[in-house]
């Protein structure tokens, strides 16, 4: 098999909730393979994207779209998708990174915390899928990847996080079921739940970047509808 040097040349990718090690690895891989990458993500209130970071991304050819606030801002999402479609004419790959969360117990978890996690990990992917799918359907195809986590099965990190992960996996199944006959691939990746900065979390982020690259190139068509666990051979439990 001959692998192309830039297998994603002329492809347009949108990566959401992407400011973080996993999102950045994904963008690096996709941009490195020649894709036109748009990175949307949460930037903490009061915290700016550094100039060096912005310059680095621009050099890679990645368009940045930072947002503030956790509410699912439907208008911002619609505008971003409209801008991409205007400038590039299509979106081939949508990667919804659904991994916002922090360690806490059920006791510590407040209703407000719960809703914030759901907005980031569940409402946003829903809104992005709704905005992007018509264009994908119009173009005759596209790939959607949802990056969730094994916490869906194990309950790790926190109750809100784990619930959002299993919910997004069911969202993946539902979308696959409705759109698989229409040229759309919907695939889930479930990396082992690790906190950012934990041992091997860098390797895990790289592995996710590589998997997204593989799926983006179209090598994963036969995986449509699957949720793939990515744990480096060291499963939990």
């Amino acid at each position: 098999m001959q692998l192309e040097l830039f297998p994603l040349a002329n492809k347009v990718a949108l990566v959401t909730n992407g400011f973080g090690p996993v999102g950045e690895e994904i963008c690096r891989r996709l941009a490195g393979a020649g894709a036109n990458v748009w990175l949307h993500g949460q930037v903490e209130e009061g915290c700016e994207l550094s100039d060096t970071m912005a310059a680095e991304w621009t050099a890679l050819g990645v368009h940045l779209s930072p947002v503030r606030g956790t509410a699912a801002d439907r208008q911002t999402i619609a505008q971003l998708v409209a801008t991409i479609l205007e400038q590039c004419g299509k979106i081939d790959l949508l990667v919804n990174n659904c991994q916002a969360g922090q360690r806490r117990s059920f006791h510590q978890l407040t209703p407000a915390d719960w809703l914030t996690t759901m907005q980031l990990n569940l409402d946003r992917p829903f809104l992005f899928c709704q905005q992007v799918l018509p264009a994908m359907l119009g173009a005759g195809g596209g790939t959607i990847v949802h990056v969730s986590s094994t916490a869906a099965l194990t309950g790790q990190i926190s109750p809100d996080f784990a619930a959002s992960q299993s919910a997004v996996q069911s969202l993946t199944k539902g979308l696959w079921h409705e759109f698989h006959g229409k040229g759309i691939q919907v695939i889930g990746l479930a990396p082992e739940a690790k906190e950012a900065g934990a041992e091997q979390s860098g390797q895990l982020a790289k592995a996710i970047g590589e998997m997204v690259l593989l799926l983006g190139t179209g090598y994963g068509v036969y995986l449509n509808g699957e949720i793939l666990t990515v744990h480096g051979g060291i499963p939990n439990g």
């Binding site: 059920f106 759901m118 569940l122 829903f126 916490a151 869906a152 099965l153 194990t154 309950g155 790790q156 926190s158 109750p159 996080f161 784990a162 619930a163 959002s164 992960q165 299993s166 919910a167 997004v168 996996q169 069911s170 969202l171 199944k173 539902g174 979308l175 409705e178």
Partner: peptide, 19 residues
């Protein structure tokens, strides 16, 4: 529908987190 499936899916992770 997809929204129903997603809403019901959330119970699985929540359950495991409470075990």
């Amino acid at each position: 529908g997809v929204h129903y499936a997603a809403s019901k899916g959330g119970a699985f992770g929540l359950l495991r987190a409470l075990v």
